[in-house]
Simulated scan of single mutants.
Amino acid sequence: MLIGYARVSSTGQDLTVQEGALRAAGCDQIYSEKKSGRQATDREALRDAIKAARAGDIVVVSRLDRFARSTQDLHNLLATLEAKGVGFRCLAQSGVDTTTPTGKLTLSILGAVAAFETDLRAERQAEGIARAKQEGRYKGRSPSIDYSTVRRLHGQGLRPTEIAGLLGIGRTSVYRALASQ
């Protein structure tokens, strides 16, 4: 049986295209969700799709980034599927199909290239920051908490827990702001 999984990151996005592609590919069941892909453990529909899959089934996605957001995440998910005797197929990257030896090789190569690109991006970012610091242009991240507002609210008699709730920040941040007076 082919089991489809579709995901978009935000409620403003639409699942129609992915679900249509999965139906056209012959998926008998489709699990869909509107959820950030940062952590696979937070995606209920993905967990349900993997739980529903039985030995000999294949989990199908439209694109690899809809399934996993990192190489580690991808390998963990694939290991879970493999342990159950379940295959994996990606429609957009047609060579990615763990039910074939060539598909397994393609997936490994793509994973290595993705990891390499991530490392290169991190190096370029670090070089850019170092150069900006040398030239005095690097300011860092702008403050996300207005310490004067924290102090003003505290001066009005609000407790740190109340201030934290009102401003949507952690209580530790409130104490840090108060200590910086």
Rank of each mutant, 00 (worst) to 15 (best):
D42A: 11
T16R: 15
A6I: 03
E33D: 04
A115D: 15
A49F: 05
G85R: 06
I50T: 07
T80R: 08
Q93T: 05
R63D: 03
A115M: 08
E162S: 02
R43Y: 01
T118D: 13
A52C: 08
S32N: 04
T99S: 11
R176E: 02
I129F: 05
T118E: 14
L81E: 00
Y5F: 11
T99N: 11
A179T: 02
V17G: 14
A40V: 04
I50A: 09
K51W: 00
L110Y: 09
V174C: 06
S62Y: 05
C27Q: 02
L22R: 01
L22W: 01
R7H: 04
K104Y: 00
L2I: 02
L22T: 00
T99Y: 02
T106N: 14
F88L: 04
R23V: 01
V61R: 13
R54I: 01
A21E: 15
L2Q: 15
L46S: 07
L120K: 12
I129H: 09
V174M: 06
S173T: 05
Q18F: 01
D42L: 10
Y175G: 12
N76I: 01
L78K: 13
Y175H: 13
I109T: 00
Q18M: 01
R43S: 03
C90T: 01
Y175L: 07
T100C: 01
A83Q: 07
S10E: 15
V60Q: 08
